[in-house]
Design a protein around this nucleic acid. Structure first.
Lengths: 221, 221
DNA sequence: CGCCCCGTTGAAGATGATCAAATCTTGTGG
DNA sequence: CCACAAGATTTGATCATCTTCAACGGGGCG
């Protein structure tokens, strides 16, 4: 069993090992705007999102916000670190979550090497996502940022094709991309004018030219 | 030589477990500008920096660069992930490194839970640093970025006090902070004019008012 | 029906980028 | 030790992108 599993298979393995280790936990509901965890809270629980969508974010004292990630069903948060939550978590849409005791997870970590491996792999993927986001925030233009966002969301939720749904507000998108709502809106309009996307409704976007969009996202010279 | 400040207990534990697991490895030298790893390279080795300093970065096709981190002596890279390196690594100053086979590390991971825990904790810390950098890149002004950088570097290298040494060029700082060299330079000048720092030489900065600098870095409203 | 929130559009402004040039550092060779 | 050259940093002027401030429109829900 020293064979490296295919990425697809490994991902499933990962999820399983963690799911099994965590057990059932407590199910809870969250309404839009409901805050589940505040940055700095003692790290007593970790969570798995079952349905809905969350934003994970950090904030500055004056209210400026940086959304670190949007959490989709099946994904975890609060798994890493040891002292405190590193970000706040807030429901965007009505959501259901499973909540687990961190103590249980850490105990299992000592026991199951499959679990340890799964958690480490989760961390690796999260690290890579976050690093890609550093490049986006530091070096991409507004247009490239929005294109990147659409392509990534499409890959995550729609398997890369067709109409995609934006469950979050323009404010959330702006806080994720390091922009303002006006710039996000204007950029979407420009992409529409250029024939790259169609805006069916504010929250429904059709990717007309995914390849050109992708090229834009990657900052093709 | 000045004595090195005693690191936190946990950090020492972490370092030890990883050091022990990796064994001795191969020592190598790198001159300034020398590229040790290119983003996308197969992940066959991981490294520990012994002396010198590296930049870890991602780049876009047209050459725009985002520095993810500066690696200081004692720190590792290439430890996470499974397929490919997620970033490039390049020496800034003459450096020495220890190189290890990833295969060995992964084998040890199955055996030693102390190692697994240490690696996971390394990942957690790296995640937290990267998330803080997302907030910086997405939501801080140039002045806040530079202040954050100086405070963080001071904490990392000087234990938080006195004169700090900037071993990297203005270009590196700019690519780390999502700015241009001109803006970095102008911002340092403004901080000097405001009495927050003194620029002894381009690479030697004295923090005159670390507390005000820190407040600025945190975006105090 | 009408309010309210969200998104879009418009105009003006500011921060940081770009283009350009002067100055300082550093290393080399006389 | 000094002169010089090459590169890095700083400074200046102008410009562009994105932000801010403001107003309008449209869809959903009471």
């Amino acid at each position: 069993m020293h064979r490296t599993p295919a990425p697809e298979q490994r991902r499933r393995t990962t999820a399983c090992a963690i799911e099994q280790a965590l057990g059932i936990g407590i199910t809870l509901q969250a309404d839009p705007g409901q805050i589940l965890v505040v940055e700095g809270d003692p790290l007593r629980h970790c969570f798995r999102l079952l349905t809905g969508i969350l934003r994970l974010y950090k904030a500055l004292p004056d209210g400026r916000r940086q959304v670190l990630a949007f959490l989709l069903p099946g994904e975890y948060f609060g798994v890493f670190g040891s002292e405190r939550h590193g970000y706040s978590a807030e429901a965007i849409a009505p959501s259901t979550l499973a909540r687990y005791r961190r103590a249980g997870l850490e105990a299992e970590l000592d026991g199951s090497r499959a679990l340890a491996q799964a958690v480490l792999e989760l961390a690796s993927r999260e690290l890579e996502h976050t690093r890609a986001q550093l490049l986006l925030l530091g070096r991409k233009s507004a247009e490239e940022k929005v294109a990147s966002f659409l392509i990534a969301l499409s890959a995550r939720t729609a398997g890369g094709a067709g109409v995609i749904h934006l469950p979050m507000s323009r404010q959330d998108m702006a806080d994720y991309l390091g922009l303002t709502i006006e710039t996000v809106s204007r950029t979407l309009t420009r992409l529409r004018q250029d024939g790259l996307i169609a805006l069916l409704r504010p929250q429904h976007v059709l990717l007309l030219e995914p390849e050109r969009l992708q090229a834009l996202a990657e900052g093709a010279a």
